[in-house]
Write a protein that binds this DNA or RNA. Structure first.
Lengths: 182, 182
DNA sequence: CTCGTACATGTACGAATGTACTACTTCTGG
DNA sequence: CCAGAAGTAGTACATTCGTACATGTACGAG
């Protein structure tokens, strides 16, 4: 009953527990004990599988980045098959802005990356990936501007009860994507 | 020599010390001892002047918000007297994006506000204030969109070595401010 | 089988933290 | 002038933390 032998699964559960905890307590609120309790493993397991707490945090943020990249592929496909890129992008963004936990997690990654440069490549995945996707429908400058706006909308939704309305999103993104190509 | 009697000044120095420390260690890295050491006061002074560490943090973030509001007034005046609003706004933003400490502090406030709702009004000051300023030159929707973009540019600069270039800023802001009024 | 290695688990420990507390000094109102 | 309030300063204490470690258990190679 106690601990069935299963290294991969145990590690995975700890990473998942850490991902669950980040929106609740923040990256800096993570502790070995909190993760162990949430994952249902003894305290010692956290130090056995991760060289340090920083490693555990990095593993959790890396996992969060993987999830984000997966979401990015979905966005890419959706944009590919749609007729109206700005409208579709606005709709996808509006959906994103309703998933508070994902937004908080991503902002935690930004904040952590601001203090720890080694995390910056991870933090760039979303913005760079989205920019690359949008480059198929607009100039490089316009694509990046639209991606920057989406991140601004994320920040806005973090501190306002009501996220940006769908029409504002669509008009703004349309305006940016229609910018002269650089 | 030790501590001349001067309550107001002491409190002010501790708040200032906390503001200095936030970009270095983050909001969650603040401790009584760190603030006391930086301010040059004994440990006891921090608990005498602030009911709890949260109070100290709140005081520091409030002070940071005051500085931001002051900066906002400068932006307002600059925009008032200029000929080309998007170009001036882009230049002001470009200057802002070079002050890394201010950006990090502001992002720390966002992250803290995401977890502590009582800080949200403070976090909204910048975005709401900028939106209000811009409302004199564009519709409500366009003004807000431009402010959201500026915050997105802040996030972008936090995790990239090179901030957004001036031309991208100007074109993007021009496109947003020219949006149909809502 | 058996033995070494990888995994599991509970406990221990030094360091750091928030906060309370005691003693001391300076100021102020009567 | 002189209490008592307000400010200053050093220290103490319970708690929590990251991490190390000792012991126990399963499992695959020979």
């Amino acid at each position: 009953m106690t601990g069935r032998r299963n290294p991969g699964e145990r590690r995975r559960r700890m990473v998942e527990a850490a991902c669950e905890l980040i929106p609740e307590v923040g990256v800096n609120g993570l502790t070995h004990r909190l993760v162990a309790a949430r994952a249902g493993v003894p305290l010692g397991a956290t130090t056995y599988y991760f060289a340090s707490l920083d490693d555990l945090v990095a593993a959790a943020l890396t996992r969060a980045a993987e999830v984000t990249e997966e979401g990015l592929r979905l966005w890419s496909e959706e944009l590919e098959r749609c007729a109206d890129v700005p409208a579709t992008l606005a709709a996808l963004t509006a959906d994103y802005l309703r998933e508070r936990d994902r937004m908080v997690t991503w902002n935690e990654l930004y904040a952590a990356a601001a203090h720890r440069p080694e995390l910056r490549p991870l933090a760039r995945l979303w913005l760079d990936g989205l920019t690359r996707s949008l480059s198929r429908y607009a100039g490089a400058r316009a694509a990046r501007a639209a991606a920057v706006f989406v991140d601004g909308a994320l920040l806005y939704s973090l501190i306002n009860d009501e996220p940006l309305d769908a029409e504002s999103l669509e008009r703004s993104l349309a305006a940016l994507l229609a910018m002269d190509a650089g």
